[in-house]
Structures are given as structure tokens and as C-alpha cells.
Design a protein around this nucleic acid. Structure first.
Lengths: 147, 147
DNA sequence: AATATAAAAGAGTTTTATGTCTTAATTTGA
DNA sequence: TCAAATTAAGACATAAAACTCTTTTATATT
């Protein structure tokens, strides 16, 4: 479904959204800890997200990542597209180079419905919306018992 | 979603289902051609499916793969589980080691619905059911214009 | 029995994804 | 202005997935 990179990206972004209220900056070490992710690896991922303007970053002492109100309006889908590209939108589930309603693979039609719903989900959920729920402890970005 | 191996597996199995009517055997070269797949690679995949009794095979002249009526009743899900394992059923979409309704990741709940529908789809579609539709030209196992 | 055919098996290669480590650039604050 | 902190960037390492090639085994046919 998502690549590992993309999983890390989504978790990191939600984590930053929660922690960077009031303009606070959150460092890569804390993101790694808070999401159970390999620090240097997600550093590269954050660079991509930063270059693509999905998140803000500042170097130096008291630096780190943060989100402004515009950033918070980005959806999960925006992160996915930034990291994994748009294969989720365009690729045939059975790998046909050309698969369409006119020339479909065997499960094109049924998969289309599922894909539509999945895309709707990741497009409708903005990063900001997760913030309050995370605060309330309604969900997690890492397992309770980390291995 | 599916690994490349799994994509090949599904396409190959549907191809065999169509071509092996009346007990005919279909060789690996024909399967590769008919599904636009790398021959030696799918040979290994077919070995797995054969060992797991999802398809029959005979060696020697006039040998090849075929399906009996029982084989035709297997679902796409059976192929998926044989090749990709049950990660699709069990893994958290964000990679949490433990993700459940009690301790969910941010998108656990919404993804659960989608996952349920996807699983329903691959479990309800048996290989045999595709056969007639493929004959009728209703869908394809490779692109019209192969690259 | 010998030969040809085709899958099974195994070893190896290439490519891509994942993960680590080091250095450079920037910024803050003393 | 200097030192410390922190992201950016790049090079490197490891692992997994995808793909290829060769040899072995089984079987049908002559």
C-alpha cells in the first residue's frame, strides 16, 4: 500500500502537527522517538517534505520543524503524492501498462470502487484534523510497547 | 498493494484457467507470453502455487499447468495469501506493530472499512468465474499494445 | 531403452528500498 | 565574532524484491 518511507512521512507529519502548536519547533530526534522511526532515514524524508513546502523548517539552535495554518490544511494524500508519487492514483492493481474501463484487467471494475473510497479518505483527512484527536489520546503513532 | 510476484501470480492463474479447459495443459512459455511476464521469474512463482496445490502441473512432453474443478473454486485471496502472505489482512497501514480498535493508528478506523471491502472482493472472486469473461474479451491480462 | 520435452530446483545477478554515517551549511545566542 | 545546535546534503551499507540462467528430475513418445 504505502512504502515504508511514506508511512514514516505520514506519522512524522502528524506528530509535528501535534507538537508544534504555538509555533514551537520540533527536532528530528524527537520525531524519530515519537514515531518509532529511524532518525537518519526520516531526516531525508523530511528534507523532501520540506523542499516540497509541506512543512517548515529552521536550522540552528532551537530550530526544527513546524507547521503553519496552511501546512495543517494539507491532506494525507498530499504527503502520499510527495513521497510515493501518484502510482496509487494511476497504476493498475495487476500491473497492466494500460488498464482502463475500456480495456480493463479482470478486477479493474471492482477495484475502482475501492480505490475511489481510499483516495477519498486520504484526501478528506487533513493533517490538522488529527491534532486534537492525538492530544486526546484517541490514537497512536507508535506501539504502546515499543520493541 | 500486491507485490509484482503476486500480480504475475493472479494473471497467470486466470490465464491458465481460461486456457486449460477440457484438461488441456498450458506451458510456462505460453503463460509468460499471454500475461506479459518474465518467463523464468513466473516459473518460480508457479512452483510455489503448484506446491501449495492451487494448480496442477505435469512434467514432460505435452506437460504443463492445468486446473481441475476444485482449483477453479479458489479465490484471488487464496493466491494472494500463497504469494504475499497475510500481511494484507494483518498489517497496520501505517506500520504500527500493534494497531487495533483499542489502540488505533490515526487512520485505523477509516482504513478498516476499506480493507474489509477489499478483502471481501478478493475472497468473493473465484478464478473460475473469470474464465468466461476472459473468453468473451471482457477484460485483458496484458496491454493491447505490449511495449 | 533412448530421446526429447517440460516443470522443479538451485544458484546467481540486478535493481530498488531501506537504513546509516559523515560533512556542510545555517542560525541562534553568548 | 565564536561556539553550539540543528537541518541539509551526500556518500555509503544492507536488505529485499525482481529477474536470469543453468542443472536436475520426471514423463511421454518413439
Amino acid at each position: 500500500m504505502f512504502s515504508k518511507s511514506c508511512e514514516y512521512a505520514i506519522k512524522s507529519m502528524i506528530f509535528i502537527a501535534q507538537k508544534s502548536k504555538d509555533g514551537a519547533r520540533i527536532g528530528i530526534k524527537d520525531i524519530a522517538k515519537g514515531t518509532d522511526s529511524p532518525q537518519h532515514f526520516i531526516a531525508k524524508i523530511m528534507q523532501v517534505l520540506s523542499r516540497k513546502k509541506l512543512v517548515h523548517s529552521v536550522k540552528g539552535p532551537n530550530g526544527g520543524f513546524y507547521m503553519d495554518n496552511l501546512d495543517l490544511q494539507n491532506s494525507i494524500a498530499d504527503i502520499v503524492k510527495a513521497i510515493d508519487g501518484d502510482g496509487l492514483y494511476t497504476d493498475c492493481v495487476l500491473g497492466l501498462h494500460a488498464c482502463s474501463a475500456e480495456n480493463p484487467c479482470p478486477i479493474h471494475s471492482e477495484y475502482s470502487v475501492i480505490k475511489k473510497n481510499f483516495i477519498k479518505m486520504i484526501e478528506n483527512n487533513t493533517i490538522g484534523e488529527f491534532r486534537d484527536n492525538l492530544d486526546a489520546g484517541n490514537f497512536h503513532l507508535k506501539s504502546i510497547l515499543s520493541v
